[in-house]
């Protein structure tokens, strides 16, 4: 409980300035580039800090459309921070300061006229641990739809079924849609959360270590689901599991200490990394 005066916005801007200039960005690894019409998300010079602690430094990268892009790196490298920046979940934490731009389909997501709720609907997110709401399976999936309001029951029913099928969960739960979501197993819960997100029709799906709390079989199911989903939307996956990144993703970005070290096609990055830092991490020589 600080009785200190909360620093003003201007003060914090200056603090951010000093945070980032005192340790100049050293990133300069090769960066793959996509044409504007191939990418859905574009990150330009993004820096982010929690109070005085920098988390991301001057990041620039583009996320391709209808592909799976993985962010890998040691824990604390800022990959989850980056993911949460993409749908502005950091808005909830007043300590976070940011510089730089993120564009969704060419539009700056921080522009004052942007509606955060609408942004989050279009950029869906699945968290590390499954977080179904304390209600029935059906209500969980219908939750986002009902937020929009004005939809008919029939239409909601159809979308729920479609979303559950897309998440490969329909067969397992179709007979107990009214049961509490908490009766599902961990893997099922996570697929339910994915179905819930799909139901509102996002263009981008952010996955924050979606399988880290699950057993191997459930993990495989989720991975298969991710591969199947890319025909419909763009996916961004954060994982600490390199095998998973190699199995699932098309492109991989390696982050270290808040900087983007290397970004390229997964195949290339894993077999023939350009930088020694990347190779060290991938081959496990990382200290």
């Amino acid at each position: 409980m600080g009785w200190r005066r909360a620093p003003s916005a201007g003060h914090r801007e200056r603090a951010l300035e000093s945070v980032f200039t005192s340790s100049p960005a050293t990133a300069g690894g090769p960066i793959i580039d996509f044409a504007a019409d191939e990418s859905c998300l574009a990150i330009e010079g993004l820096s982010l800090a929690y109070g005085e602690t920098p988390a991301l430094r001057d990041l620039t990268l583009r996320v391709p459309r209808h592909r799976v892009t993985a962010f890998i790196g040691p824990s604390g490298c800022g990959k989850s921070t980056l993911l949460r920046a993409l749908n502005r979940l950091h808005d909830l934490n007043e300590e976070v300061v940011r510089r730089g731009e993120i564009r969704l389909e060419g539009q700056d997501i921080h522009a004052p006229e942007v509606d955060v709720a609408e942004l989050r609907r279009r950029v869906g997110m699945v968290f590390q641990a499954p977080n179904p709401f304390p209600m029935s399976i059906y209500d969980n999936v219908a939750f986002g739809l009902r937020l929009q309001g004005g939809l008919r029951k029939r239409r909601i029913d159809d979308t729920v079924e479609w979303a559950l099928q897309s998440a490969a969960l329909w067969e397992e739960v179709k007979d107990r849609l009214r049961a509490s979501a908490w009766t599902l197993s961990g893997g099922q819960q996570q697929r339910l959360v994915i179905a819930r997100t799909l139901a509102v029709g996002p263009e981008v799906l952010l996955l924050d270590e979606p399988a880290s709390a699950l057993d191997p079989i459930s993990t495989l199911k989720i991975e298969e689901l991710i591969r199947n989903l890319k025909s419909r939307l763009s996916l961004v996956l954060v994982t600490h599991n390199m095998q998973q990144a190699a199995r699932v993703s098309d492109y991989t970005a390696f982050l270290q200490r808040g900087e983007l070290v290397e970004y390229g096609p997964t195949q290339t990055l894993f077999t023939n990394p350009r930088l020694a830092r990347t190779e060290n991490y991938i081959t496990g020589r990382m200290t």
Partner: peptide, 11 residues
Amino acid sequence: SLGEGALALGA
């Protein structure tokens, strides 16, 4: 996590 889940759905 509950609140974030709802926010992530565009609530």
